[in-house]
Amino acid sequence: MGAMAEPTWETSEVAPTATSKRAVPDGLWMQCLACGETLFRKAVEQNLLVCARCDYHMRVTGRQRIEQLLDPESFEPMNAKMSPADPLNFVDLKAYSDRIVQAQKLTGENDGVQTGTGFIKGRKVVVAVLDFSFLAGSMGSVVGEKVTCAIEYATDHGLPLVVVSCSGGARMQESGFSLMQMAKTSAALGRLDDAGGLFISVLTDPTTGGVTASFAMLGDVIFAEPKALIGFAGPRVIRQTIRQDLPEGFQTSEFLLNAGFVDRIVHRANLRSEISRIIDYSGN
């Protein structure tokens, strides 16, 4: 892939729009951002939004991910109507309340996560899928609450939990409320663990900040899609702090595998079968 996007709010400024470099543009043909190959859009979609030439894993929305991951028509959403409040009346260059409305219009979603139950190769699971196209998949109160409800549902019903992360981190516009979602989701995972439940965490490009430093890194088994950006601090912040260039391949899935923080790098085409396999081994 080319220059990696910074996992910050700046990306979120451009990511949700249809004209974004990152999103798949409308039209019959599209260009792979990594290798520049011109691709037939339909074929790319059939290939799970992976470039047939260079294997670049393009970013997918929450809905696309659910379609790719679950058995057809098996998804039953939970808490679909939960939507963000603006507890601090946060205003930066733009009001948070306006950002919410804009993101909702662009994506047709209420916030940056889809949760519910469904089946993967016939196995019932609880899923939570973060959606980068909604304010960079950032975790505010809604993402925290929906993920926590999903974890609690998995705990109470003895179901395996699969969370697919794709997020710039905690949502700054909810400040302390966002921060505490890290504790809330992690505490819920402690209860799932106490109950002997299985949690498979899937890290996709990008997974950074407060999402990485809470539920995303707490999987019993952690998968990562190839070449995803995964980290705590963003590369730019690190570069500014140490005032040195970052090593080649720093904070990629492969880097984390070598460092011992990811179990397996899983190609998108194999995600369903790899998840099923772990569920079978766990006996969940």
Binding site: K81, M82, S83, P84, A85, P87, Q104, N110, G140, S141, V142, G144, E145, T148, E174, F177, M180, Q181, A183, K184, A187, A188
Partner: peptide, 11 residues
């Protein structure tokens, strides 16, 4: 920690 959050149940 479970009860921390501020959201709307309806859009």
């Amino acid at each position: 920690f479970r009860t921390i959050g501020s959201l709307r149940s309806h859009p």
